[in-house]
Design a protein around this nucleic acid. Structure first.
Lengths: 258, 258
DNA sequence: TCTAGGGGTCCCGAGAAATGGAACGAGGTT
DNA sequence: AACCTCGTTCCATTTCTCGGGACCCCTAGA
């Protein structure tokens, strides 16, 4: 087992363990001798990957990771332009907006900001969620082949949320609808009380896909207004496609020179 | 040289290198053999700390760091409460707000969100800045001894911004003013055209200090309004101190039991 | 068409680092 | 005082990492 793989195993294990964790928890969680865990955590703290509270002897993620984390996909022209457009959309509408990426069968929030309406839930960048139980995820899945979607969702994950698709067949129906409409909606699925509309697009240079969303309280936004918000998002997407292109447009000649 | 220290050296070097970087740049930047750089980058990508674009052979920070980065100081009750209060303040006033921490002679943004006024500059979490050239940094420095401040600012850093203190003496004056007022202001210092007001406080449990700020366009907010914003921030701080305490209040008995 | 140069990859012997069982320290509880 | 839990340190042994050198691929220029 290389030093690097041990360190990354600890970092992966530490995801979701806010605010801190101890030597024994790491040893137990990773089935690792306590002396190994103690030594690795101490080394990682010394190097700045972690911080250690001397009073409690507990560890937490280090500031270096805060600095690097915000850098993920930063500087990519399409990502920055999309984010700027979504910040404008929040100003214009008062609703929370953001960008999500697909990772396996989950989504990870890349950028987000709260709206000015009293929506309680803010999903900060770095947060994971079930891709099948929100519109951003289904939009991203819609860009994959049916076979690949089936592969990722067998066995089908359990989630006790009545509005979320509860079988692969239901998920495929929702995805088909997203493909047909060009956008998707969710309401009280992964996030209770939260509704959203979203669109997906890809960077023509790299093929990296992302989903742009507007989130709002399901109780306070009627059907008509949701359609208006979807249209605003489609307009944002159209402007970005006009400026950067879309993967679908250049997919064929992508590998060929020229 | 341990494997861990090499990996962290690469991660530190990678800060600020958006959107990506190559093997040769790392080897040159860290004075490292190309074979070493190539092997380390490949291993780091395999483990998810980095991602590699097969087409360009260039590397970038990995999604794992996005997930861990947002976790920094997350789950700490005071940080979460302060952030929620600042989100409310953005809703209420329309101005950008956030939290910054001190690291040596620099500040690092922990949380931030844009306002709804047309302020162009948004400083995302993870961004570094000169502590002496903005109000958040001076507030945090105000909590240190004069000797410690002098130590951190000798030699005094150069920064070509006319409104920023350009000597240790000027910095100490500004810090003295922040101590007297309980808040500080900046205008067109580290960030051109950007003004801010901020207050600082510390977690009584851990002693960790943080600065809360409101940022706005220097052109569009008059002196009266700035004082109102400072009062709002002081109110937020007072509410947090009432709820959590402040380090100054419990500093003496901190090490003693009880 | 050929050559040179830049960027990057892979191999593997030598040397350095990492592992983890055992012993131990500190603090809390009975 | 004895016991338990959490965490630390030591060091013999094992495993891993380093990086020079050879090599590959691609592009530009003669």
């Amino acid at each position: 087992m290389s030093a690097l793989s041990n360190v990354v195993a600890i970092l992966r294990w530490a995801r979701g363990r806010e605010p801190d964790f101890g030597v024994g928890e790491v040893a137990l969680g990773l089935d690792m001798p306590k002396s190994t865990a103690s030594r690795l955590l101490k080394d990682m703290a010394r190097q700045g990957l972690l911080e250690r509270d001397a009073a409690t002897q507990r560890y937490r993620v280090g500031m270096l990771l805060l600095e690097l984390g915000r850098q993920y996909r930063a500087g990519q022209p399409l990502v920055e332009a999309a984010d700027a457009a979504l910040i404008d959309l929040t100003r214009q509408t008062g609703y929370a907006t953001g960008i999500s990426l697909l990772d396996g069968s989950e989504i990870v929030v890349l950028r987000s900001r709260p709206g000015t309406h009293p929506l309680q839930v803010v999903t900060p960048p770095g947060t994971r969620g079930p891709a099948w139980a929100n519109s951003t995820g289904r939009n991203l899945l819609a860009r994959l082949s049916d076979a690949e979607i089936a592969r990722r969702f067998t066995p089908y994950p359990a989630l006790d949320r009545s509005n979320a698709p509860s079988s692969l067949a239901q998920l495929m129906e929702r995805i088909a609808r997203a493909r047909a409409l060009g956008y998707d909606e969710s309401d009280d699925e992964a996030l209770p009380g939260v509704a959203a509309v979203s669109v997906a697009m890809a960077d023509p240079q790299s093929g990296d896909a992302m989903s742009l969303y507007i989130a709002f309280s399901g109780l306070h936004v009627n059907r008509q207004r949701r359609r208006e918000l979807a249209t605003l998002l489609l307009d944002v997407k159209a402007a970005l496609v006009a400026r950067f292109g879309d993967e679908a447009v250049v997919a064929a000649p992508r590998r060929a020179h020229g």
